[in-house]
């Protein structure tokens, strides 16, 4: 560029007439307003992005009549991602979601042809016993016990959103 550099700090024709303080005030204010605008706009965009109209997964699901299940037996109930176990005492349900990072655990043994030995997680090799207690692996705690109930028509319902005590059984 064949130019003669001019003073880069100045507007065209602008000399040192303007009080410095006023210019500083304007600039400071402008920057503050700009920051506020940016923050607000970012907040609005974030609110939009956080929106979801995706339906919630079911919190509970019916699993047929108690007499559909042999005693003892173990059945995976897909809708609530849980194992429905029937033992000599009654029914209970174990959350199949691993307490480590949420993979679905596999049953070892089906409780019918082979004894239910426990559960293992295919992701990072956590092991749980047949009662869902943690045995080994990175899982921080055992599997959750989910509430099992009978509805008015005599069907079993498993509630994902309600945890119970390991000794609780639904006696059918």
């Amino acid at each position: 560029m064949c130019a003669m550099p001019t003073n880069e700090n100045e507007w065209p024709g602008e000399e040192d007439v303007e009080p410095l303080s006023r210019r500083k005030l304007f600039t400071g204010l402008r920057k503050a307003l700009l920051a506020a605008t940016g923050a607000l706009a970012a907040g609005e965009a974030a609110q939009m992005m956080a929106h979801s109209s995706q339906p919630e997964p079911p919190e509970s699901a019916t699993a047929g009549k108690p007499e559909d299940y042999a005693a003892p037996s173990l059945t995976f109930v897909r809708d609530v991602r849980a194992y429905l176990v029937r033992d000599a005492l009654g029914f209970y349900a174990l959350d199949a979601v691993c307490s480590h990072l949420g993979c679905l655990v596999r049953a070892v043994g089906d409780g019918q042809n082979s004894p239910l030995l426990g559960f293992e997680c295919p992701c990072h090799n956590s092991h749980y016993d047949a009662q869902g207690e943690r045995i080994s692996g990175p899982a921080p705690r055992g599997l959750r016990y989910l509430a099992v109930e009978l509805d008015s028509t005599g069907n079993l319902i498993i509630h994902r959103d309600r945890e119970t005590h390991p000794d609780d059984r639904l006696i059918a």
Binding site: R23, F26, R30, L33, T37, L40, E44
Partner: peptide, 26 residues
């Protein structure tokens, strides 16, 4: 002289305008 005094004012006003828009959306 006056032009010079207002030089920094317009960007300030425009920024305020933009802020008002975002507040308006809210």
């Amino acid at each position: 002289m006056r032009r010079v005094a207002l030089a920094g004012l317009w960007p300030l006003l425009a920024t305020a305008g933009l802020l008002l828009v975002v507040v308006g959306a809210w």
